[in-house]
């Protein structure tokens, strides 16, 4: 999965917490498909209708703060999201996303947030750590490379496959 192509959905808000991504009452649900139907319910009740498989999210800093619920990356990934672009992630959300092999939390510069619009088509290249904006004349943005161990876990498809 070194090249990804998809439509980006932009929620230009900081501190989107896990209570918003998947509200508390759904914590007792552990069926992944059912969780997906409630993804981002706290911010956009039509969210799941808008997402196609392989799409991306573009969000403000500290995405996924709050409770440690792994329901959050699960719900997003099962609804079709493959990667999330943000200037920063809350730590537990970040590790859940990577270690569970659900989706990729990709760190971008703060100013990239302004340059990409909702519904732009993006090509993300993990070998060269770039985003190409197909909608905006192939404008290129840099992404922050994963550290060594993290990138090995990503390549393995999650923590359980990594340290056999």
């Amino acid at each position: 999965m070194t090249m990804m192509y998809g439509t980006v959905h932009k929620y230009n808000r900081s501190n989107i917490d896990t209570d918003v991504i998947i509200p508390g009452p759904y914590l007792k649900i552990h069926d992944h498909e059912e969780l997906a139907t409630h993804a981002m319910e706290g911010i956009d009740s039509d969210f799941t209708k808008k997402i196609s498989d392989g799409d991306f999210l573009l969000v403000g800093h500290n995405f996924g703060c709050g409770s440690s619920r792994e329901h959050a990356p699960i719900a997003l990934s099962k609804s079709g999201i493959k990667a999330i672009l943000s200037p920063s992630f809350a730590r537990i959300f970040y590790r859940n996303a990577i270690d569970g092999g659900y989706l990729l939390p990709i760190e971008i510069d703060e100013n990239v947030l302004e340059k990409i619009d909702d519904k732009d088509k993006l090509e993300i290249d993990l070998d060269n750590n770039t985003i190409k904006n197909k909608t905006k004349d192939n404008e290129i943005h840099k992404i922050k490379p994963f550290s060594k161990i993290i990138s090995e876990i990503v390549k393995a498809g999650g923590l359980f496959n990594y340290n056999k």
């Binding site: 440690s68 792994e70 537990i92 590790r95 859940n96 569970g100 999650g158 923590l159 359980f160």
Partner: peptide
């Protein structure tokens, strides 16, 4: 602990941190 407020117990001089389900399973 499988809960974000696992940090609480650090007041006892322990390293206490919250983790998600996959990490706890690991």
């Amino acid at each position: 602990g499988g809960d974000s407020h696992t940090n609480t117990t650090g007041a006892l001089g322990a390293f206490a941190a919250g983790l998600g389900h996959t990490d706890i399973a690991y």
